[in-house]
Design a protein around this nucleic acid. Structure first.
Lengths: 353, 353
DNA sequence: CATGGTTACGTAAGCGGTTAACCAGAGTAA
DNA sequence: TTACTCTGGTTAACCGCTTACGTAACCATG
């Protein structure tokens, strides 16, 4: 059982003051070598690890940035669903944070009023990257008032907060345009995620842009709502088939729903893409493995996470700097579900033979 | 830009001492209602969030548990690979931690000597759950000397540390036995992950147990090594086909490799399971979507993460308690790649119609 | 030789909370 | 009236670091 030792013990054992120990540990130069060595030796022998809280209190900086996922519980709830986004964002964030000696804290807002939890976390971090997917602007503002925040989300940047995101609208416009221009489809349906979801809204909006750019009529709302889940996508697909003339193609708000739609169509003996073409969004792992492989849009998730904490760190360094907003382009990944021959334009597998 | 206020300001504004503010905030009772209200109001108006470091220093508890993933960078490196394990463990850990008001910190050990980073993190947390997959026992012991540790890994529990894991050996034994008993296969190959990986070792060992239980001869080493990646699995599959008489079935160390193997077999015009049966391990999302769907073994990853931080918290509460070791059973998920008709025994989809 | 500049370290005042110890005043009992 | 117990607070001593200052010793300089 490790018994935590303090800087005082290290100081005593090496016969110097705590100030010297502190300096030796983080400056390393400007000391007689023997002093330095004695301190280092003592620290090692005592297995001294400087107390984060004590240091944080002294320097007024915890050295921790938080990642707030409002819906951590919901996503990936199906036992082994692939909750890609969260995961990749974490990796990127971790990299950017450790690059400057910081660490990252993960937090979720539990049930509705549990925003207090967000605040219990707020005290432990220097700033927060918040995944705004299921958070209202009001909640965001509330959080942002007690701790520096950068918003990580779909393409819509909130009024006065730093923002990092991927160009969801552009990506959606791009797939849709592909369907229209490359394949000549004109009757295209859209299945969205949760109605209030900014991601879903952005994607639907990009869809509309592509239609109107092609001179097609643009719907006001998605043809159906699939909640971003596989099962929801399956239901939604059936719903649109029941509700209207069969569309020639349907663009789905994400890959999970597209996979669900695939299942629905298969069970109805409709062929993809021959009878109906399909596209997804996100390029999750399964998109490649499903039959036919899914044409989709990839976001640079890891980069998003990395950039978000960079922006946050900049903000902490200079609270007065002008608001920033960085949006990453997305990448169209063409596979077969759109009707293309099977030529893959996306990044190839690590090694395919 | 949020300007952090302190307990002193709250105290002054509400006309009480800091002691009272502190007590009101965390005890809530034993005060005249008007005092209570004044304090709460002042805190709200000032948007006061108690400083984590200050509190941590005072109570000698940061209220943070760390999750150490030695290989966070390697896993999920292929842009959109499904890095399921990490992700689910995080979710479980987060849940258990917030249940007691703690938060979780994510850390990775970068390149080899960067263990110092692990220690920079050590000061910020009260304890560490370490994913031992790619960590030597020595490193583990080193870390454990400066901070309480619980090991989360395959079925082999390190000497004196608290341990949480899944019964990898048992799971592997179970799939293998299924292949033998249900399907009558007798010539079965094994493709493992990295040779030193405890997970791989455990799984290979379970494989051997099943063979010997059936009176079959047991190999000393895996037939090939696929590094736990899809591409590696593909290579390994070709390698075993080139090296020996075609086996009737092959059990793979994880799903990624099994998916790679599937690709290899497809390109060689061998049918699965008719010509060769395959099984995986982990039950990642793609296992369901691949053709044929993969028979595999599921580990309760989220439970593992949850239990690990519980054990850690118990340890912190009672450093003297006897060492604990909890291992979760795995679950056999039968799909079609093993030769079964397509009856699925695993947990069904959220809703399939 | 007084003065000033370095070098190498020590002193001690915080940082923002928590909490043991103490206390004023009101009520209660003897 | 006196002593005692609650109630509802306050005072002040930490928690383990960092860092602005201070200082002693030594060297160089005019």
């Amino acid at each position: 059982m490790p018994e935590r030792s303090t800087i005082y013990e290290v100081a005593r054992r090496s016969g110097v003051s705590t100030a010297t120990v502190s300096r030796v540990m983080r400056e390393g130069v400007g000391f007689s070598p023997e002093t330095r060595d004695r301190v280092l030796a003592a620290a090692r022998e005592l297995r001294w690890v400087p107390s984060g809280p004590a240091r944080g209190l002294a320097v007024r900086r915890a050295g921790i940035v938080g990642l707030l996922f409002p819906d951590l519980d919901q996503t990936g709830e199906a036992e082994n669903e692939s909750p890609l986004f969260v995961d990749q964002v974490i990796r990127g964030a971790e990299r950017a944070a450790t690059a400057v000696g910081d660490a990252v804290l993960i937090a979720a807002t539990r049930n509705a009023p549990g925003h207090d939890l967000a605040l219990s976390v707020a005290g432990k971090v220097d700033g927060l990257v918040v995944m705004a997917r299921s958070l209202s602007d009001r909640d965001l503002a509330r959080i942002a008032r007690s701790v520096p925040v950068v918003v990580l989300a779909a393409g819509s940047a909130p009024r006065r907060l730093d923002f990092v995101g991927a160009d969801n609208r552009g990506g959606s416009r791009q797939v849709t345009a592909h369907l229209i221009e490359q394949h000549g489809y004109r009757d295209i349906a859209f299945i969205g995620g949760p109605a209030q979801s900014p991601d879903s809204i952005e994607r639907f909006s990009g869809f509309g842009e592509a239609l109107s750019a092609a001179g097609l009529s643009t719907p006001d709302v998605p043809d159906a709502e699939g909640g971003f889940t596989e099962a929801g996508g399956e239901r939604a697909m059936r719903a649109v088939l029941a509700a209207r003339k069969r569309p020639r193609a349907v663009v789905l708000g994400n890959d999970e729903m597209a996979i669900g739609a695939l299942a629905a169509l298969r069970s109805m003996r409709l062929r993809v893409p021959a009878d109906i073409a399909l596209t997804g969004f996100d390029d999750i792992a399964s998109a490649r493995h499903v039959r036919p492989p899914l044409t989709t849009v990839r976001q640079p998730m890891r980069d998003l996470g990395e950039q978000a904490v960079r922006v946050l760190l900049d903000r902490l360094a200079d609270p007065g700097a002008p608001r920033r907003s960085v949006v990453f382009p997305t990448e169209l990944v063409i596979r077969r579900s759109c009707g293309c021959a099977g030529r893959v334009t996306g990044k190839p597998m690590e090694s395919s033979s």
